[in-house]
Design a protein around this nucleic acid. Structure first.
Length: 311
DNA sequence: AAGACGAAAGTGGTTGA
DNA sequence: TCAACAACTTTCGTCTT
């Protein structure tokens, strides 16, 4: 559908030659699994049409193809009833033939081990994604990453669940969804350390470059959990932007920076939250918030109103 | 009494020999 | 593989509101 010679490049992993259209559901980078464009507009029918009449009849058939189902959603089912589509009995001769077809199909659908493992992996991906409320593009991305890992024989000798968890994390990083290793570790039965290890492994083998996490990505989530206004969000984002420019954020945990920025912003906007509240929702300690926020206030010359003092 | 502060010791992950 | 290291946590006593 999408012409190969269009020469679209993946904005993240740059050097990758072409983006496959993957049967017109999304534009996905075949290398790193980044979903570049969610829906391609003006999809056009899959048959040639010769006149307007025909065009009306032949529009679009079937659900969009997806990577999150093991056969990409292209399932054919042969009914077990011995009736044709009109409900008539099927002649005996034909029945035998259909019986053979059914048997054959069963074997094809999920018989070989690879396929069965893929089904398991995808259901695991889906399970984790549902628990974390991940958007569709992240799920697709995770599925693509997993399939890619399978193609390169990276699963062999490793547990499916570990790779699945790592694929989810990788997809989140790709799509800038602020999910932590801890959150995934809690849902899957994989330890944080192992998810991280496998994630690094995937990144290396699939040659995906992950940009460092920007503290800004945490802000919306934190702000909404703390029920803070969008004004606070904007202030916090501004603080982080300035901090980024001064290089203060380098080497520090992005979560800590985000938490400190939110804390400061909540004070500046007169919607104050305690250090404890922020610390709890951001999953860092009050001490860390204190250290970061002191640093931010000093280095950025922020003016904190009189209800707070510091030396 | 709750919140903020900071010193000191401890933990887990990264880095470089 | 080991030690050094920075970021972060835990704990706890003190100060402020």
């Amino acid at each position: 559908m999408v012409e190969k010679d269009k020469k679209i490049r993946c904005p993240e992993c740059g050097e990758i030659e072409l983006i496959k259209d993957y049967e017109r559901a999304e534009l996905i980078c075949t290398n790193c699994g980044l979903v570049i464009k969610d829906k391609i507009e003006n999809l056009g029918p899959e048959w040639r049409v010769f006149d307007k009449e025909e065009e009306k009849k032949r529009v679009r058939v079937g659900a969009p193809v997806t990577h999150t189902v093991h056969d990409k959603g292209l399932t054919t089912m042969i009914d077990w009833k011995d009736r044709d589509i009109h409900g008539r009995n099927i002649p005996l001769m034909k029945r035998a033939q259909i019986y053979r077809l059914r048997k054959l199909q069963k074997r094809l659908v999920a018989s070989n081990v690879t396929e069965r493992n893929l089904i398991f992996a995808l259901s695991e991906l889906n399970r984790i994604a549902s628990h974390l409320d991940l958007p569709k593009n992240v799920r697709e991305s995770a599925a693509v990453i997993y399939r890619k890992a399978m193609e390169l024989n990276l699963i062999k000798g490793r547990s499916i669940e570990e790779i699945a968890a790592a694929a989810i994390y990788a997809a989140c990083r790709r799509c800038k969804v602020p999910v932590t290793l801890d959150e995934i570790a809690e849902i899957s039965r994989i330890k944080k350390k192992d998810i991280g290890r496998n994630h690094r492994f995937l990144a290396k083998k699939l040659r995906i470059i992950f940009p460092p996490i920007n503290p800004i990505d945490y802000i919306p989530k934190l702000a909404s959990e703390l029920k803070l206004s969008s004004r606070v969000q904007n202030i916090a984002i501004n603080i982080i932007k300035q901090a980024n420019m001064k290089g203060i954020t380098l080497g520090k945990g992005p979560k800590s920076i985000a938490a400190a920025a939110i804390y400061i912003a909540s004070i500046l906007a007169n919607e104050r939250r305690t250090q404890r509240e922020v610390a709890e929702t951001a999953h860092v300690t009050e001490v860390t918030i204190r250290n970061r926020y002191k640093e931010l206030v000093e280095r950025l010359n922020l003016r904190i109103p009189s209800n707070i003092k510091w030396e």
